[in-house]
């Protein structure tokens, strides 16, 4: 079976959608030379009208995409750096997201915002290492964080076809992954995936942390039976899928690369405990409150949610029960 890299999966999704729908076009910085690699070969194949390299004007080109989308186009806007989403938060949340309701349903804004390299990129330090997916989930913007090459392909395709704005976070820590994928297919938004079934505890893991959760589950096999649930889409969240898993295991741990306060882990735990009587208090493993990733590699790692903290959290919820 052919092996597909995560990065190549994103590239293939863009190419397939550009080929399928004339209304799809790409905007972003340095995309003609594919600085992030996900647009490799697309300029040559689709031309500069549809692969539009932009000046460093994030706010204008993000709203330019909104305007184009209002007329029926399906722009994909690439941001090389996750922190650029802070710069365009207003354009996405206050304009693209609000236009359909504010106009009483006169329009749709089908824009995809793609961040190929979100979260920590070792050595890039404070202003290039954020993972602000919880902000968009809070605002009610469709937010996806694919963990695998197949999901990267399938969720990006679905994002582009969605009639609402969608932010696609492709974690830097997942970009080099490869997997055997014969024929990638669209993956529906809002549907989670159980990567590994288990009986004792449900671990909800976001993005690249799915692989850490699977590794820890492997290590613990024989002691604790861990179910790994990957929501894939953080908003809208697959509550039915998660509640089904927690109903089986009765215990919950969430591992989430957000800052602790108001991160998606808090929402996951709140929603579950509103509806399910767990056998032990749930736990979450996150970045610290107000995290700024420090430069030195050991410091950078120290504020990321990692396997050791996840093991401790699993031990807590299984011991308490």
């Amino acid at each position: 079976m052919p092996r597909l890299s995560y990065r190549r999966a994103l590239n293939r999704a863009l190419a397939d959608e550009l080929a399928r729908d004339e209304e799809v076009f790409l905007l972003g910085e340095d995309i003609r030379v594919a600085a992030s690699a996900v647009t490799a070969g697309l300029l040559k194949r689709f031309g500069p009208e549809r692969v539009r390299d932009t000046p460093l004007s994030e706010q204008a080109f993000t709203s330019f995409a909104t305007g184009a989308a209002l007329t029926g186009a399906r722009p994909v806007v690439e941001f090389q750096i996750p922190a650029l989403l802070f710069l365009v938060f207003e354009q996405i949340v206050n304009h693209a997201h609000k236009f359909p309701l504010m106009t009483g349903g006169q329009c749709a804004v089908p824009v995809t915002y793609l961040v190929p390299g979100s979260g920590s990129r070792t050595g890039w330090a404070g202003q290039h290492s954020d993972h602000p997916y919880s902000l968009f989930a809070h605002a009610g913007v469709t937010t996806v964080v694919p963990a695998t090459p197949a999901d990267a392909y399938g969720l990006l395709v679905s994002a582009i076809r969605c009639d609402d704005p969608v932010v696609v976070f492709a974690p830097a820590a997942a970009l080099e992954l490869r997997a055997e994928v014969s024929d990638p297919v669209p993956v529906p938004l809002g549907r989670g995936r159980v990567h590994r079934t288990g009986a004792d505890v449900t671990v909800v893991a976001v993005g690249h942390l799915v692989h850490d959760a699977l590794a820890v589950a492997d290590e613990l096999a024989g002691e604790v039976s861990v179910e790994v649930f990957d929501p894939r889409t953080l908003y809208p969240f697959d509550w039915d899928g998660l509640l089904g898993s927690v109903a089986r295991t009765g215990r919950l741990v969430v591992v989430d690369d957000s800052n602790r306060s108001c991160g998606i882990a808090g929402e996951v735990i709140a929603t579950v405990v509103e509806q399910v009587r767990l056998q032990a208090p749930p736990r979450r493993v996150t970045r610290p409150d107000g995290a700024v990733l420090p430069f030195a590699p050991a410091l950078d790692r120290a504020v990321q949610p990692g396997r050791e903290l996840l093991r401790q959290a699993i031990a807590h919820v299984t011991k308490d029960g």
């Binding site: 706010q59 204008a60 330019f64 909104t66 305007g67 007329t71 304009h95």
Partner: peptide, 11 residues
Amino acid sequence: GAIVTGAVWAR
């Protein structure tokens, strides 16, 4: 400004 620029360009 940017919104109308994008709309005109797309059409």
